[in-house]
Amino acid sequence: MHKQIYLFLWALLLVGQAGVAQTTNTTRDTMSINYQQWLNDSGLSRIFTLHSTERRGDSLRLYLAFQDNIRYAARSAWEQIDAKFRKEKGYPLPNRLFFAFVHIYKQTPDKAALFVFDTYDLSQAVCMGVAVRMVNGELKTDYRYCKAKSEEIVLEFNPTHRVGKMIGSGQVAQLRKKAQQFLREKYANKPKEGYADLSPPGSSNPKAKIEVRGLRREVLYDAGNSWWCTFWNWFHSNEPCTAYPREKLLIEVLFTPEEGRNWKMTCTVTGWVGSGSVEKLSDSGYRNMEEEFDSYLTRYTTLLTNELAAYFQK
């Protein structure tokens, strides 16, 4: 009887391992090695690595992954390199990746598809996904981003208002600086592990962009009510629970001109959550809030946009 149980266990374990291996079905054939070599030679391997290939009938799919160190910033990495390709080579990045793929794999373009995902971990939300394929003789690229929360609000400026008096790029710069100032002040006194102003340079740039990491109970305001903290507080009445989840926020504030002297302000918040009980948390330890805390992020985005609008109307 025991032997049967142990044999069953071994079989179970092997099936489990085969399942894990199946999810990373990396076919390292000669063509895949050549494609990876092409990525290396073209310098694109700093951003991408070949994840796997999958044959479906006579069509072939190629899956690329982002390198681990930029996975959390996959979208901006993609946008930067795509813009560079368009400017320097005159064609977009997806075209280069796709045509190299069909050439190296000797595949007819209409029987080929290329996918790029920031994660292949089924338990995590995909925050950056690109699908490139040939549709009716034309290359089509579809994007999928994780749902950052966006709120739009129209800022009405009286012509006598300081911002209202300014015109053109001066006004944009003024708005952006004010948004940057608001965000700096808002997070200045909050416990955090890092603050970075990622706003693109240039006086005509209409976007303020910041990243704050290691915040606690900012978006997940009721994290103190967790079972863990309740349990902790039973035994440590003098030492309150501090193991609140870490939060990382990427906040983008974009200004677009409206009719008259009004401006539309679009506030976009992308949120990540990570362990609150480890001493140091690397970027890959954060996961998108979309998976479990969607409603919290929606609420936070609305509150932040309203606060920001009130600040502008001061």
């Binding site: 142990y6 266990l9 071994w10 374990l13 489990g16 391992q17 894990v20 999810t23 990373t24 292949y120 971990d121 338990s123 995590q124 990570g274 362990s275 009980s277 480890v278 001493e279 140091k280 948390l281 690397s282 970027d283 890959s284 330890g285 954060y286």
Partner: peptide, 26 residues
């Protein structure tokens, strides 16, 4: 949780531990 390894790697790690010790434990 610290982000040293991802979830998929942790699953593989647990499977490796179970199989490495499984024979001895049985």
């Amino acid at each position: 949780p610290s982000g040293t390894i991802g979830y998929a790697a942790m699953q593989s790690g647990l499977a490796a531990v179970e199989s490495a010790f499984g024979a001895y434990l049985s």
